[in-house]
């Protein structure tokens, strides 16, 4: 089930009112950021802004920067300078098809930097308003102490702040594909079955997740009315596999050793036949099993009563297959 994800929008507004007797107009600046994620396209949209009123911006440059952490990488790392506002927008693909939003962390940075340069003194504040000297920022009052006098600064960064927002849910992206590889013919207890390896591909790492199989549409194509062997029943699913790597498990497709008589009987009956079954693979995510692929698995035997050395058995899993001579 795909949950509807409401656009997440967060505003962070910091207002700083500077009460300066020598400046009649308001001297305000603030920061703002918002973002959203589209589960259909898988894109995250980010916007950050640093703003100031005209008088303030006249003497200061503004900067806004965004970056989003997906859990494995930083994306949307972009920044812009601007006057009287600095804006930065970014959109980029992160994940789709999830039952919830991606696990994302948005971090924005906002700077206010003085632009007046006093020769011999570096950057300074002509109005005696420095956001540098007075520090630190008071998180409890969301304000800075009253500004003091201009002074030399070694860095153009006069003021910066950051905001951080987290999307609380975890994103699950079902595997887009499971690929089967014929590994070998079975040994020991599985000498009548092909051994297949499976690998998962998708938008995320499936490490430690559970994968299980289910079966439908099983058909015993060897059965002949009157045969002493009853029509075979469908496989019973194995217990779930725990994904240890993207190539996560081995699957035996074929017959058990105790069924050698069944194979030999139909080989002696000069048959080319077997069974096939629709094997559906599911992964446990977002508190439920979600099917990500169905494919046919099959077993085949070929019998030549007058030339038994040519008898074969083979196994299929999806598009992969393997066989041996067996009599």
């Amino acid at each position: 089930m795909i949950k509807t994800w409401n656009v997440h929008r967060t505003h962070l507004l910091i207002l700083l009112a500077l009460s300066l007797a020598s400046i009649a107009r308001g001297q305000n600046f603030g920061v703002h950021s918002d973002w959203s994620w589209d589960q259909t396209t898988g894109y995250v949209y980010v916007h950050a802004q640093t703003w100031a009123d005209y008088s303030f911006s006249y003497y200061y440059n503004l900067y806004a920067q965004t970056q989003v952490y997906t859990g494995s990488a930083w994306v949307c790392t972009q920044g812009n300078w601007g006057t009287p506002t600095a804006n930065v927008t970014c959109s980029t693909y992160v994940a789709t098809g999830c039952a919830g939003p991606p696990s994302l962390t948005l971090t924005t940075f906002h700077e206010v930097a003085p632009t007046y340069y006093l020769p011999g003194h570096g950057y300074s504040d002509a109005y005696g308003v420095s956001l540098i000297r007075q520090s630190p920022y008071s998180a409890s009052t969301q304000s800075w102490p009253s500004p003091g006098y201009a002074q030399y600064i070694g860095s153009p960064v006069a003021f910066s702040t950051g905001t951080q927002q987290n999307q609380g849910s975890t994103c699950f992206s079902r595997p887009t594909e499971e690929t089967s590889y014929y590994n070998s013919w079975g040994t020991q207890g599985y000498t009548l079955a092909g051994v297949f390896a499976m690998s998962l591909a998708g938008k995320q790492n499936y490490y430690n997740m559970l994968v299980q199989e289910s079966f439908s549409n099983f058909t015993d194509l060897c059965y002949l009315p009157g045969s002493p062997y009853s029509p075979l029943s469908s496989p019973i699913p194995s217990p779930p596999w725990t994904v240890s790597a993207n190539q996560y498990a081995y699957d035996n497709i074929g017959m058990r050793n105790d069924q050698a008589g069944w194979i030999r009987y139909y080989q002696e009956a000069e048959r080319t036949c077997g069974w096939n079954v629709l094997q559906s693979m599911s992964i446990y995510m977002d508190n439920q099993w979600q099917t990500y692929q169905s494919h046919w698995s099959a077993f085949q035997l070929t019998g030549y009563p007058n030339n038994p050395s040519a008898n074969r058995v083979g196994a299929y899993r999806d598009t992969a297959s393997g066989w041996i001579y067996w009599q």
Binding site: Y190, Y229, S230, L232, S233, I236, P239, N252, M255, R256
Partner: peptide, 21 residues
């Protein structure tokens, strides 16, 4: 008299007796 557990897959008959691992 031959025995045939008439189903496919490893531990097919065992899984009819008990479930899971």
């Amino acid at each position: 008299l031959r025995f045939n557990a008439a189903g496919v897959g490893p531990f097919w008959l065992d899984r009819l007796f008990v479930s899971g691992q």
